[in-house]
């Protein structure tokens, strides 16, 4: 089961910095997380804008095409809420 790391406001939301989450691919992992933390769903709302940013082993995931990519415990998954900077 892969390790999922949380950042910024997601740490408050989930109460953790990292968590082991069951799931064979990203879609399943996110579904599991959204069930446990309903607040996560807000970041998929607002007409598709402001999604979470998901990084798997350093690769930025395009949520439209990569949600079914299989993941294993060797993979590191980072989830960022909408953030910005300069």
């Amino acid at each position: 089961m892969p390790v999922v790391m949380f950042y910024a406001t997601l740490r408050q939301l989930t109460g953790e910095k990292k968590k082991i989450v069951p799931g064979a691919n990203l879609r399943e992992i996110l579904a599991t997380l959204e069930q446990e933390f309903p607040g996560l769903q807000a970041f998929h709302g607002e007409a598709g804008r402001f999604r979470t940013t998901i990084v798997v082993n350093g690769t930025i995931i395009n949520p439209e095409i990569a949600m079914d990519i299989p993941v294993s415990e060797a993979d590191r998954i980072d989830i960022f809420p909408p953030i910005a900077g300069g």
Partner: peptide, 22 residues
């Protein structure tokens, strides 16, 4: 959420982990 949550709460240094991880 960028201007109403991320920036007020964490400031611009919230970019550090993301830019690093990629």
């Amino acid at each position: 959420p960028l201007t109403s949550q991320a920036l007020p709460e964490f400031g611009t240094a919230v970019m550090m982990n993301l830019v690093n991880n990629v």
